[in-house]
Computed example of a mutant assay.
Amino acid sequence: MTNSPATAHMTLDDVAVLIPAYNGQADVDLTLASFSESAPVHVLIVDDGSTPPIVAPAIANMTIEVLRMARNGGIERALQTGIDVLAQRGFRYAARIDAGDRSVPQRLAKQRLFMELHPRVAGLGMWTQVVTREGKPLFMLTPPAEPDAIRRLRFFRSCLAHPSMMLRIDAVRAVGNYRAEYRSAEDIDLFVRLMQRYDCANLPELGLYYELNEGGISATKRRRQVSSTLRLQLRYFNVANPYDWLGLAKNLLHLVTPYRALQRIKRSLLTSRASH
C-alpha cells in the first residue's frame, strides 16, 4: 500500500491502541500482528483477569504494555481503567480494537490526521468489513460520515463501530469515561454523552475487519445489550426525531426475535444492498 505524504511521516507518539482482553491469547496475537503503520505503535492491553494471563507478543515496530486486573470485572471496567491509565501516561488518543479483529494498514495515521484537523471530533470510526472467524466476508458496515447524520440516526442503526474508533482521551474523561450503568452497551452510552458536547464522525473507507464471534457479547449477552440500549433510548429520547421512534420499534423487535434469525435477516438485507 502506498502511503500518502500526510500519513507517511506522521508520528503516533500520542496514540495508543486500547485492547481489553479476557483469555484468547491467540486472538490478541492475531489482532496486534494486523497493524501496519509507518511510525512505531503503542499498545495497552487490559488483561481482565485472564487465566493464564495474557502475554505481550514480540512484534516489530510495536511497544506493548499489559495491565493486569486483579479479577475479571467486565469490559466496562477494563475500558474505564485503560482510558485513565493512558491519560496518566500522557497519550491524547485511544484507538479501540477487540481481540480477534484486524486493522487495515495506516488506520491509525489516517484517523489521527483527521482528528488533528477536526478538533471538535471526539470519536472517529471507520467502515467495517464483518467476517467469520475463518475470515470469510459476510457484509460491510458503511455508516454515515457526518456528525449531524450520526446524531440523527444514533438509535436507529449502528453508526459507530466501537472497535474501529479513535477517541480523544480528554473528551472521554470529561463526559465521565466508560461506565457500567448500561452493561453491554457501554459504547453507545459513551457515544451519546460525547455527542452532547462534541462531534463523532466516520472516515468513509475501510478501516477494520470485525470478527463475528457467536460467543461474543452480541450473542451471549444480547438480551442485556438490547435492554441497556432501550434504557438509553428512553433516557435520551427526542420526540421530534422520527429515527428515535423507528429505533425504539427496532430494538423492541430485537428483544423478541432470536439472535440467529436477526443475523440471517441482517446478512440478507446487506447482501441485497451490496448487489445493487
Rank of each mutant, 00 (worst) to 15 (best):
S103Y: 00
L141R: 14
T51I: 09
A174C: 03
P163C: 06
L234N: 07
V43S: 04
L190S: 01
D244G: 04
I64R: 07
H276V: 13
V55A: 15
F191Q: 07
L246T: 00
H254W: 07
S158E: 14
A94E: 01
A161L: 06
V15W: 13
I97D: 02
D47V: 07
L18V: 10
V46M: 03
L208H: 07
E37S: 06
L160T: 06
Y210T: 08
L208M: 08
R231P: 06
D14H: 12
V226A: 09
H9F: 13
P242Y: 06
P242D: 14
S227Y: 02
A122P: 11
N238G: 14
V130F: 12
P5K: 12
R231L: 09
A180C: 07
E214F: 10
S184T: 10
R154L: 15
D27A: 15
I217S: 08
L212Y: 10
R102S: 05
A21D: 13
Q196N: 01
L32A: 02
P258T: 05
D187P: 08
G123Y: 01
A33Q: 11
R267F: 12
R92D: 13
R264Q: 14
L113F: 04
P105I: 01
R107N: 00
M165H: 02
H276P: 00
E214Y: 09
K250D: 15
D29E: 12
I217P: 00
E214Q: 09
M69K: 11
R193E: 00
S218R: 13
L194C: 01
S4F: 14
F155L: 07
Y22I: 07
K266I: 11
L141I: 14
P242W: 04
P147A: 06
R222E: 05
P143A: 12
V28Y: 02
T2S: 12
L234R: 12
L167W: 02
L212P: 02
G215R: 10
R120A: 15
Q111N: 03
G49Q: 01
Y93T: 00
P53M: 06
P147S: 05
H118A: 08
W245N: 03
A122C: 06
V172I: 08
G215E: 14
E211W: 04
C159M: 10
T11M: 14
L32E: 01
E37L: 03
K266F: 08
M115Y: 09
F155H: 10
K266S: 14
R89T: 02
L44M: 09
Q88S: 14
S158K: 15
I64H: 10
L108D: 04
E146C: 11
K110R: 15
F91S: 04
G216T: 02
P20D: 10
W245T: 04
Y210A: 14
D189H: 05
S103I: 00
Y182I: 05
L194H: 00
R197P: 00
L30E: 07
R102D: 00
I54G: 06
A261I: 10
L141P: 03
A60M: 01
L206A: 08
L79V: 04
G90E: 02
A95I: 00
D98F: 02
G24C: 11
M115R: 09
